[in-house]
Design a protein around this nucleic acid. Sequence first.
DNA 1: CTAATTGATACTATTTTAGTATCATTTAAA
DNA 2: TTTAAATGATACTAAAATAGTATCAATTAG
Lengths: 134, 134
Amino acid sequence: MKLITRDTDYAIRAICFMAENKEEITSVSELVEKLKIPRQFLRKILQALNKKGVLTSFKGKSGGFKLRRKPQDIFITDLIKVFQGPLKLNKCIFKKKLCSSVDRCILREKIGEIEQRVVSELGLITVASLLNKR
Amino acid sequence: MKLITRDTDYAIRAICFMAENKEEITSVSELVEKLKIPRQFLRKILQALNKKGVLTSFKGKSGGFKLRRKPQDIFITDLIKVFQGPLKLNKCIFKKKLCSSVDRCILREKIGEIEQRVVSELGLITVASLLNKR
DNA sequence: CTAATTGATACTATTTTAGTATCATTTAAA
DNA sequence: TTTAAATGATACTAAAATAGTATCAATTAG
Ligand code: FES
Ligand code: FES
């Protein structure tokens, strides 16, 4: 049961690197060298982050990527959403068929509550908060 | 991001059925008919539950399965563990490499805390609690 | 002009989840 | 005692999600 998949993971690392290393523009080549992430996979990830408005991209020679927002305004949940879709643990497991003859399902309710918790806890974590304590 | 996979789901339904329907022994055939779960898949699931001590099995004609414990003593987390292994959201995503040059990782800590929450919330749900409100 | 870069897109590989098939063994009951 | 209905064990297949690769086109600093 993974809360964070590989692409989200790599995205977090890349963004942390870019946030620390204050050069305005960082290229894939530099990230590959420093973080040892497979090149094409990382490219795909950064392109997605660009499309979703987390990064800005610069084409051509000496191009690369740059954070579009400040580290304290980039939430881990944003990144999870980009790669893993909306943060839902829920998804009406029982298709409303069985687990309640009445029209409410205890298990689903409970999972809904848990989800709220997870979302709100995760919702507090920003890229900046991952860097602070270094 | 699924908190509960299909096999766990089916296990819960089957066990709820067996808990309600107070006949001592329930056969796969009956469950298949009532719950519309694929036969072989359900068999595999019930066999696993038997091995893990949740159910007892009875071989031969008119055999089947029976709850080994009372519904209030069967926790959803037990079932999750049977099919999905230990309840961990954690798994040191960053392999201790990057996200802290100091030797602690904020993200991991946070996820650890969230995990505790999830586990303790889920830990309160029993099969009995799913049936009560009908 | 050209080498270094991103954009777009299609493809492949691996792992996890879901489901099937089959034969052996057990047992209640005709 | 035979037999049909059950589980035990195990190996197999299918589908979906995750992880990663390959390639060519467009852009741009130098
Ligand atoms: S999970 Fe959908 S009705 Fe219970
Ligand atoms: S997740 Fe392992 S060191 Fe941060």
